[in-house]
Structures are given as C-alpha cells and as structure tokens.
Write a protein that binds this DNA or RNA. Structure first.
Lengths: 351, 351
DNA sequence: CTGAAAGCGCTTACAG
DNA sequence: CTGAAAGCGCTTACAG
C-alpha cells in the first residue's frame, strides 16, 4: 500500500507538503497542491489512520460497550449511537458484553488499549475494578441506560417511573390486583429501579409486592421463562406479570404458552422496552417505550462534549406507556391509537 | 498514560527488554522479567495497541460490514462473528450499511484506512467501485450471506433452494396455488436467488410465477408493506405471500392486519430467515431458517485462514424449513415439533 | 541475556 | 510557501 513517501516522490515534494495538502493546511501553493492531489489519485493513496493516530494521540473513535446485542433495545441504541457519531466525524467500535462482567471487562480493556477517544457504557454489573479504574484513569466516559452510582461520570438514561405509574393505573382500572414483576439483576441500576418504581406505584393503590411476586431474572429470555413458571406454580398466581425487559417478556410468553394458558385471558403480561415485534405478538404486548434513538444521540453528544473539553451533561428522558391488549381490554374509551403498524418503521424516521 | 519508556525506567532495563517480557520472548533473565512485571503492575501500564499495530503492520482486527443491524438475522450473524473472532484472538469492528451503498462504502473505506487485517462483507449492492478495488487491492476479504459474482473472494453462505422446495411442497399440500413472493433488491444475490428458487420450485408443480405476483422489496419492513398492499389490491390476490426476509414479512403482517384480514384464514404468509419472535407472532410464522451462527463462525475461520496465509474455502450450508401455522393447518400428520419455545434461546447454545 | 538503534507512517514546530 | 528533523510508542534484527 502506497505511503506518504511514495506520494511525495511522485509529486516531487516533501512529505511535509503532502501532509499539509491532506490536512488542508492553508499555506501550500496551488501548484504543489495540484501535483500532490494528482499523485494521491494515481497511486490510490489512503492515509494510514494508525500512524496518524499514533502521532496525533487521537483516534476519532468511540467505544460502546453494551450488555446484549441480541436485545433489540440495545441494537437500536447501538444503531443510533453509530449514526450520530458518524455525523460528527467519529467511528464507533461496539463491544457486546452478553450480560457477562468478564466479557464486558475484556471489551473495556481492548478498547482502552486501542486508545479510543471516549467510552460509552451500559454496565452489566455494579462496577468491576477495571471499570472503576477506567473511569478514574481519565478515559472520557459516559453511561447510557444503566450506570454505576458514585462515579463522576455523566449518565444519559430514561426515567420510567411515570410510565410505570401509568401502567399500574391501567392494570388497576382493568381490575387486576395481584401484580408480579420479573426483575433484572439487582447489581444493575435498571434491574433495581424498575422494581422500586413498580413497588411505589403499587403502594399508591394500597397494593403490596410480596417476595413471591418478585421473580429474579437476568434480562435474558430463559430467566423470564423460569420466573414465570414459578409464578404459575404458586397457589395464588399473579393476574399480571410485568417483565423488566423485552427478552424476559418473550420468555414469559413461552412459559405461559407451554402451560397451556392464554394471554390475557388467563394471565396478563406487560414489558419494559417496546420493540416493533410487540405489535405482532399474540396478543400485542403492552409495553413501556424508551426514547431509544434520542438516548443514543444524546449520549454521543455528551461524550464528545467531554472529549472536546466542553462540560458534559447528564440527561434523563421520560419513557411512556404504550397500551396494547396483553393485560386485558379496556371497556371504556378506546386506548389512543399510539401504535399503528407504522410503529415498525418509526426508527427510520427522525422525530 | 504510562509508556514503555516509563516501565523501562522504573524497572531499570531498556525498552527492548520490556518489550521482550511483554511479548514473552524466551531470552529474558528471570530477574529482569520480575522487575519489569513489577513495574508494569505498579504503573498500571497497558501497551499502546496503536503503536504496536504501526510497527507490526497488523491490527488483529477484522471488519464486518453488514446490510442492516436492525435485522435480527444480521444481529445474530454479527454476534457469532464477534464471538468466534474473540476466541481466535481478534477484535471486530462492525459497520452497518443500512442497505445503502454509500454508507457501505463509507465503512469499507474507514475500515481499510484503519488497516484492519481482513474484511467480512455482506454486500448491499452488486459491487461499488470501491468494493471491487478493495477486493483487488489485496485486503483479505470473505463474503458472508450475500456476495458479488465474478470476484475471486471466498463466499460463506447458505443455500435455501431445498428449503424453498420444501416450502412450496407444504403450500401445495395445503391446497394453495396462487403463490406470490416479495423479493429483495435484484442487485443482491439473496435478492435474486430466492426468487429463482421459488420460481423453479413452483415450476415443478406446474405453477407459474406471474409478474404481478412478484413484489419488489428492499429487505426493509416498509417495502414488504407496500408490496403486500399491491397484492391485496389485485383482482385475484395470492393465497400465500412469501417474504424474502423477516423484516418484509413484518411489513406484510402490518399490511394484512391494516386491511382487516387474518393470517392464515384470509391469506397465508411465509418468510425467509427465522427469528425467535416468529414463534410468538399471531399466528406463528412458517419460515426458512439459516444456520446463522455456524455461518458467522465459518466466515471468520475462512477469513483468518486467508489472513494467515492458509487457503481459504468457500462454504455453503443448507437452510431448512420450519413449519408453523401462518400458511394454514396441516390436516394430516402433525408437523414435527421443530420449534418448541426453547427455540428462543437456541442461539445461546452451541450445537 | 541485554541494549542501542533503526524504522513503521504520519504531523508539526522550526528555520529559511 | 517549503523542507529537514524530531518524535508519537512500539518491535526487532544486530552486535556484544
């Protein structure tokens, strides 16, 4: 592959001049510029980004470590992050932790070794030593979705508290009183917060959340399945199960179906995180939708602010309830047609 | 951040010795090794991968350019690629082309500029000049899923021909004769091949595939919706619609629902590419499943073979039909229970 | 076993 | 406007 030396030789100038042309430095004669551009063209020269990074100490690359790529929520987040980063002149390298702290650490280490300019993380756990070290070592960092308390790292996330209250109001209006939740790992913020929000919302109706109605999941489908099986085996099973993410909801659907029961006739189901497929499940699933695309964009901007020396900001965006049919039909006024089929493609449009 | 010089100074040795310890070169005295390791530890030193890459002319990084991350098929492919690459000591940088040739080219260019060791591509089009150049310029390259004919680049893909024949046999047995397809872009191999496979399979039953029954899609949900609307507006609409990927099937479901029709009662639906959600749609969707995980693994191995100078091999793996209920119920022997709820998590297990 | 030195491909003061 | 030179952080023959 041609190097800057080859270009300089072909153009009959020094490598310094080639570099200046390449970086649109003003003081280059039109003649030299033309000769360099000609040489670049005929040699098919492309600057070596590795060498450039070594010299300038910046890679124009962002790292994104997410908990699980197979989770459509994170896929959409990753897409929006990459889109915004690209628009701002950065590339992004995605690391998939697969909800495993050691894989997460592997990615963080690799990313830091490659000297990425900044790191976007949705931590899988409460904070491994490596993650804490990275945060303190001064790698510009921003948390998205999940975060680690006690660190001086900006957080971009959404607040589902109000939406969970709306959900509980909806369930209560439908006459449901025995309400259970499948929680995520307590070590994650989204794991514990969603349970707390649910518990508080129930309390407002004088409903308690007994331990038997708290299933311990890990945000993966299998755990949703197991938790639901346990609920169904109870002498008094819940009337509605609220899964703290979409994969556990999928597992819950599996378990309910395997037990020969029907949603919502025999048991209701709701989920945190909305995805296009929920419009098409049997029945369509009532869910809490995060402003995922906006979250990704905002997180990138916050990180780049930090990288470029501007004060970064933590941002919290509201989530909203999308009522469908999986908890039973509302008898009263029809629910707002919030999700026409076009919901599928909403991710393709800018708000 | 500490550099190799700092470590050398702290350990009282030369940078050459530090480098030898880091790369487990045999000829280092135990004493020197211990002092270096101690210094590395106390300084929290991590080698700069950028500098190392510049020097060794290898990045131990693979590029993967896929057509659409939001398509669960590609997400799963990407995951399997990353997993296998990691196991073999490589990182992977994913570029999402979003089915747009110019974005695809952007990623190819960026990846080549970063001097990735090899490129895995599922091309969005018939071959942009840049892609052809990259292939000829000697960047080790392997095509996955889709490929560009006429290039000397190994291809790892799956053959759906037999599965499409099984599908047509299934539809024929159910009494369906008016069969339509929503095709992908003709410029992609998977776009054209699936139509041809379908046409051939129909021919075996003396059924023709009229132009009106070929919807032109682009592998995105919206195009599936529009094509289906057009089918439904026909004076003689098809009895079954076969979507060439899962997103267009989702769009078809939308259109059918919007028209107030039911699947399979009013119209049948089948899809190429199986995904966990198809078990839970209303009704569960009959689909052709690719060995996606295996495809990703095989592609990585082929690419690394090429990178490390071993002769790489093209591989074609068979796809298989998974019968569910979206084309009507089989009256005769119940279909094999190929997809119990555990299908959801099958991607978590090794075959 | 060890170190001095060259060099990977760039960028950027510095001097002219 | 231009070039010679230093240097980013490594690795690796080469000589001892």
């Amino acid at each position: 592959m041609a190097s800057i030396k080859d270009v300089a030789a072909a153009a009959g100038v020094s490598v310094a001049t080639v570099s200046r042309v390449l970086n649109s430095h003003p003081s280059v004669s039109p003649d030299a510029r033309a000769r360099v551009l000609g040489a670049v063209d005929s040699l098919g020269y492309r600057p070596n980004a590795v060498a450039r990074s070594l010299r300038t100490a910046q890679t124009r690359t962002l790292g994104l470590v997410i908990s699980d790529v197979l989770n459509p929520y994170f896929t959409e987040l990753a897409r929006s992050v990459e889109e915004e980063a690209r628009a701002l002149g950065y590339s992004v390298i995605i690391g998939n932790a697969d909800e495993q702290p050691d894989i997460q650490d592997h990615h963080v280490r690799t990313l830091v070794d490659r000297r990425i300019d900044g790191l976007l993380v949705s931590p899988t756990d409460g904070g491994s030593p490596l993650m804490l070290e990275a945060a303190h070592a001064g790698t510009p960092m921003v948390f998205v979705d999940r975060w680690i308390p006690g660190l001086d790292v900006p957080v971009v996330r959404s607040d589902g508290r109000a939406a969970v209250r709306d959900l509980v109001a909806h369930l209560h209006a439908l006459g449901h009183r025995r309400l259970a939740i499948i929680a995520g790992p307590a070590a994650t913020t989204t794991g514990s917060e969603r349970v707390e929000a649910f518990r508080e919302a129930l309390a407002a109706y004088g409903i308690s959340l007994p331990d038997a109605y708290i299933g311990q999941g890990d945000f993966q489908a299998d755990s949703g399945r197991r938790a639901t099986e346990r609920f169904l085996a109870l002498s008094e099973p819940p009337e509605v199960v609220f899964a703290a993410d979409n994969l556990m909801a999928l597992g819950a659907l599996d378990a309910i179906r395997a037990a020969g029961l029907r949603v919502p006739h025999d048991i209701g189901l709701a989920a945190f995180d909305d995805i296009p497929w929920f419009v098409h499940t049997d029945p369509p699933v009532t869910a809490i939708a995060q402003p995922t695309k906006e979250l990704g964009r905002t997180a990138v901007r916050a990180l780049i602010d930090r990288i470029e020396g501007r004060p970064p900001q933590s941002v919290t965006l509201p989530a909203r309830l999308v009522v469908r049919r999986s908890c039973g039909e509302t008898k009263s006024p029809a629910p707002a047609p919030a999700d026409t089929p076009t919901a599928t493609t909403s991710t393709r449009r800018n708000p």
